[in-house]
Design a protein around this nucleic acid. Structure first.
Length: 338
DNA sequence: CAACCGTGGAT
DNA sequence: TATCCAAGGTT
């Protein structure tokens, strides 16, 4: 059983000496802390840093972000992935603007009700910005706690996360924000997934799995399922005005991002002409093949070049394409026009 | 609740 | 190349 007071003391002492100097640790602004937590969702620190700096430079206050055009914000998020994160955050800061006079709610209940604020981000922001004693349980914390207690439960189950959250809140000290960050920092730098640095660990003496030499057996997690493989034809349709056919994606995957016409490989040109209301040139061999891997899908894309004299509101000047938010998958397609 | 939702880096 | 992982949330 964990000696709570001694554990927290050891961990916090280590953290205060060893914490990394990250951009979002140079501010007490709840908005900026919130932004960083949203960016850090399932995304590595090194990836987030340049995006965070760009956003803070361009949208220094909550009102700057709230007043911004959604498509421009999406464009600035381009390449970071999980695009609903920024769509939800944009919506949430607008909510804060008109409901809370542009002040990030200090009442946990109010903050947790905002779009895109779940158990982790809610706990992180409320503890770091306002010192509320709420846990912030991410993948790092799940791994650290599983190893400390030789916890055999599956960390991919929501019930486990909920239970660990309660456990952390039973040991969380008054310095709640630092404690939450210290647990994550420990997981990110010492108690790492593959080669943990147990000999440098400040809480080694509290660790059950270290005592029994079973650290690498934790955390328990069910293996991920196989990705669905999908085969598509992507069409770069050009007219005689240096324009290409492009439109906003409405489906859940990559919602709000622009795309080129994308069809299952067995879809006939006639069907496509009918759906797009265009008269198209004869189909020739694909000019390229591309593969793109998502969390749960793999796209194998054949890239085709087509021409038309038909008119449509969906034609965009090729030189202006880069002004529109586009997924990496579609960027891989578009690069073959250059 | 299990499935969905991006991307890049490490091994 | 295949798999896992990374400061998770929504449905």
């Amino acid at each position: 059983m964990l000696n709570k007071n001694e554990f927290a003391l050891n961990l916090l002492e280590w953290y205060h000496i060893n914490k990394r100097d990250l951009p979002w640790r140079q501010t007490n602004d709840p908005y900026k802390i919130w932004l960083s937590e949203v960016m850090l969702q399932q995304t590595q620190v090194q990836t987030v840093i340049p995006y965070f700096n760009k956003f803070i430079d361009k949208y220094p206050t909550l009102d700057d972000l709230a007043n911004a055009d959604e498509q421009e914000v999406l464009k600035d998020w381009e390449g970071l992935g999980y695009y609903n994160r920024i769509r939800n955050l944009h919506s949430a800061v607008k909510e804060v603007q008109y409901t809370y006079n542009s002040i990030v709610p200090q009442k946990p209940k109010q903050f947790f009700e905002l779009k895109g604020v779940g158990p982790y981000i809610g706990g992180a922001v409320q503890s770091i910005a306002f010192n509320h004693r709420i846990a912030a349980v991410d993948g790092n914390v799940l791994r650290v706690m599983a190893r400390l207690n030789e916890d055999n439960r599956d960390i991919s189950k929501q019930s486990t996360v909920k239970s660990v959250k309660s456990y952390v809140e039973s040991i969380i000290p008054l310095e709640s924000g630092d404690f939450n960050q210290a647990l994550m920092e420990l997981g990110a730098t010492i108690c790492t997934p593959r080669i943990p640095k147990c000999l440098s660990c400040p809480v080694q003496s509290h660790c059950e799995s270290f005592k029994s030499n079973s650290v690498l057996q934790y955390p328990k997690k069910k293996s991920s399922k196989k990705k669905t493989e999908l085969y598509y034809n992507i069409f770069l349709i050009l007219n005689d005005k240096n324009e290409v056919y492009m439109f906003m994606n409405e489906s859940n995957l990559l919602k709000g991002m622009y795309k080129f016409p994308k069809y299952d490989i067995d879809t006939s040109i006639g069907t496509i002409e009918e759906e797009l209301n265009l008269k198209l040139s004869q189909l020739k061999e694909p000019i390229a093949e591309e593969k793109h891997v998502f969390t749960h899908q793999v796209w194998y894309m054949n890239v085709y070049l087509l021409y038309t004299n038909s008119e449509s509101e969906h034609f965009i000047k090729i030189k202006d394409v880069s002004d529109y938010p586009m997924s990496v998958a579609m960027q891989k397609v578009f690069k073959h026009l250059n």
